[in-house]
């Protein structure tokens, strides 16, 4: 098979991988924020639900979660297509880790910031969204960046539920053409480029959000 053809098939796979990342990442962020905030501020029963979610998705393998959602849920009458299953499984999985990122970042904002915002009589939601969160976001960006890269890497699992992502196409090509060197070389490069794109984007975001916070110093 010609190299150009290989690249074009793999590109189709890469597009699918990017689609999954593009949908799973917002889901993960949504889960991370909602359950992170629930863990910190909600009444105990809700906190317990959050803990079950977090520990379940962190404590079992992503592949088994994917299998469950795709193969087992249909036995309970819940049938979803492979793409949705992939997005849901990966989004929930990465979201569970993200929950701890959100919680940790909020808790790392110095206590003095809460106290000053109480002294200035901000309401509790103003405190969270205007004072604490803007500072916590900056702390969240690097670990969220790592999780986003984890997500890109984890998408290769979806090839096991018949989705034609980058890994799936690569294996298919490798099985038929045996040009494994070229194929997996290109695959490696594609994953790397996707990760680098995320890194670039995350750096930009970090610079943007850390205005005023850059020059360190605990006591501001």
């Amino acid at each position: 098979m010609e190299f150009g053809e290989i690249v074009s098939v793999l590109l189709q796979g890469a597009v699918v991988t990017i689609q999954i990342v593009a949908m799973a990442l917002p889901l993960a962020v949504l889960m991370a924020f909602s359950f992170g905030l629930i863990r910190l501020y909600a009444p105990t029963p809700f906190k317990q639900i959050a803990i079950v979610y977090i520990e379940f998705f962190r404590g079992t393998s992503a592949l088994i979660q994917l299998y469950w959602i795709y193969f087992v849920l249909p036995f309970f009458g819940i049938t979803i297509d492979a793409m949705t299953a992939a997005v849901v499984a990966l989004g929930l999985n990465i979201g569970a880790y993200g929950t701890e990122v959100v919680r940790g970042a909020i808790q790392s904002v110095p206590k003095g910031q809460y106290e000053a915002s109480i002294a200035l009589n901000f309401t509790s939601s103003q405190r969270l969204w205007r004072i604490i969160m803007p500072q916590a976001l900056v702390n969240m960006i690097p670990p969220f960046g790592n999780l986003a890269i984890e997500l890109v890497k984890a998408t290769s699992l979806v090839s096991l539920i018949t989705i034609g992502d980058l890994t799936f196409k690569a294996k298919m090509l490798a099985d038929t053409t045996l040009q494994v060197g070229e194929i997996f070389g290109v695959v490696l490069l594609f994953y790397f480029v996707m990760a680098q794109f995320l890194v670039f984007f995350i750096r930009r975001l970090e610079t943007h959000l850390s205005k005023g916070l850059g020059r360190g110093g605990l006591h501001s």
Partner: peptide, 22 residues
């Protein structure tokens, strides 16, 4: 408490300024 805090203002030992605001 929200109503009562209107009477009071505090300046802190470690300033506690909001670093993300001018």
């Amino acid at each position: 408490l929200h109503k009562m805090r209107n009477h009071l203002g505090m300046v802190f030992q470690h300033f506690n300024l909001f670093p993300h605001m001018t």
